[in-house]
């Protein structure tokens, strides 16, 4: 999941470097991806709270990751009209402190859910449909898992 989810997030073309798991642990790439998904909801005021220069400071990373996670969950509830229930939320402490790839994968899964349900979902879904079948399959499974945990 984490490998395919990374491939997917790379298609967003965010400014921040996005090549390794380490690149994503600061939360900045994910915040920028959310902003691409919905610039009105994830506005400049929101993203200004995500600290850009975290270096190796895992406490700052965790702080950013918490904001991204809350943002994605609130977006699901307030804009997409769906409550994600019974889904094992990513452990941001493990991502920030230990660069845990599996937990990062779950975080990216939530962002994937935002992308394929937002106003601009056509663009994101069509991009996925142009990826390799093996990647599409993993993405499909990830979305299906999320959908099974959603309640309106």
């Amino acid at each position: 999941l984490e490998s395919c989810a990374m491939r997917h997030i790379q298609t967003f073309g965010v400014e921040a470097p996005c090549k390794t798991v380490e690149d994503l642990t600061s939360g900045i790439v994910m915040a920028q991806a959310l902003q691409k998904i919905d610039l009105v909801y994830f506005n400049d005021a929101w993203i200004s709270r995500v600290k850009p220069e975290v270096g190796d400071n895992w406490r700052l990373k965790i702080s950013n990751l918490k904001k991204v996670l809350k943002g994605a969950l609130d977006y699901n509830q307030e804009i997409l009209g769906q409550h994600i229930d019974d889904f094992t939320l990513p452990d941001v402490n493990l991502i920030g402190e230990h660069s845990d790839a599996a937990e990062l994968g779950r975080m990216l899964q939530l962002i994937l859910g935002c992308a394929v349900n937002c106003e601009q979902k056509q663009e994101y879904i069509q991009t996925i449909m142009m990826m390799e079948e093996s990647v599409q399959h993993v993405v499909m499974t990830a979305i299906q898992e999320l959908m099974s945990k959603e309640t309106p």
């Binding site: 979902k121 879904i125 079948e133």
Partner: peptide, 30 residues
């Protein structure tokens, strides 16, 4: 060729799924 058939079936499953996502209505009411 069974491999080609399986590949085509898989493609169909993927296309159906993503097309269904495209036509799914989302958004909070009101």
């Amino acid at each position: 060729d069974p491999n080609m058939k399986a590949g085509a079936a898989n493609e169909g499953v993927l296309a159906n799924f993503f097309n269904s996502l495209l036509s799914k209505k989302t958004g909070a009411p009101g």
